[in-house]
Computed example of a mutant assay.
Amino acid sequence: MDFRTTVERARRLGQLHAEYKPLVLPTVWDVWSARTAAAAGFPALTIGSHPLADSRGAADQEGQTFEEVLAAVRPIIAAVDVPVSVDLESGYGHQPADLIAGLTEVGGAGLNVEDTVHSQGGRVRSTQEHADYVAGLRAAADDAGVPVWVNARTDLFKHARDASAVLDEVIERLRALERAGADSVYPVGIQDDDELLAAVTGAVAVPVNSTAHPARHDLDRFRRLGVGRVTNGPLLQLAVTDAVKDMLGPWRP
């Protein structure tokens, strides 16, 4: 994609986060789903690692290489006229500068990066390590001249037996990510917990991302809780799968 177009899309993605409270970015996985979501009127999209992997017969949690992911997302990004952010999991073992170079070369306007390091047995980065990685992404994007939107994810709630017991640690991590240059933060696994969502949205100044199911969750609820950004993770693809099964059921031989 033309460099100027990539820069324009990245800038637009930043503007959209300021214009919408919250900004809803449907999580897509191929050209069809991206075109469908864009045609439905959404001004920006995300590509999720889990649905992308499922669509390609690969495993989530870095079952694809970075190069394979770039090759897969390139035609998706090119198929629509709206900014597209790409889930880059924990970075596929690459340095931040490599991620930014590859992402911007295929036209990506933003990225998601998590702290569970799948290439190293699923260990979780420390707060400082994850903040340093995000700071490296921010610096690389600045050096490239592309205002890539960095959505910094933490899996601490997801890994905890008792999510409320790690709230203070999560808030410390989110604030460190914000200081490191994250444009938004993403504490996964609490989309159904009003108390935890309100606690994290009140603890940071940047938008907080929440996962949402397109049929089971309510946008107004997320708005009331202060959520600034909504994506679907694998839930939109799962909802589509359920709908297709229901439609096909009566036609079984």
Rank of each mutant, 00 (worst) to 15 (best):
I47M: 05
V117L: 10
P234N: 06
V170N: 01
S210E: 12
V73C: 01
H94I: 00
E105Y: 03
A58M: 12
Q95D: 14
S33L: 08
F222C: 07
T36I: 09
A40N: 06
L225D: 03
A243S: 12
R179F: 09
M247V: 11
I190Y: 03
T231Q: 12
P234C: 01
D54W: 11
G233H: 01
T154P: 01
R138F: 00
V134R: 07
E169S: 09
Q64Y: 11
Q15M: 10
H213E: 12
N112T: 12
V208M: 07
R12A: 13
R224A: 13
L70R: 00
H17D: 04
A34D: 09
A131R: 06
D54P: 01
P253R: 13
L238E: 14
E19I: 06
A140I: 06
D168W: 05
R74Y: 06
G181Q: 05
V24E: 10
N151V: 05
V86N: 02
E67Q: 14
V206N: 07
A109N: 03
H130R: 02
L16K: 01
A141N: 04
L23H: 04
D30V: 09
D194M: 00
Y186E: 08
V106N: 10
I47S: 00
G48T: 07
L196V: 03
G226F: 04
R224P: 08
A97N: 11
V185W: 02
G181W: 04
P234H: 03
K245G: 01
R252Y: 12
Q95V: 09
G14H: 08
T104L: 08
Q61K: 08
D192W: 13
T154Q: 05
Q61E: 12
P147I: 05
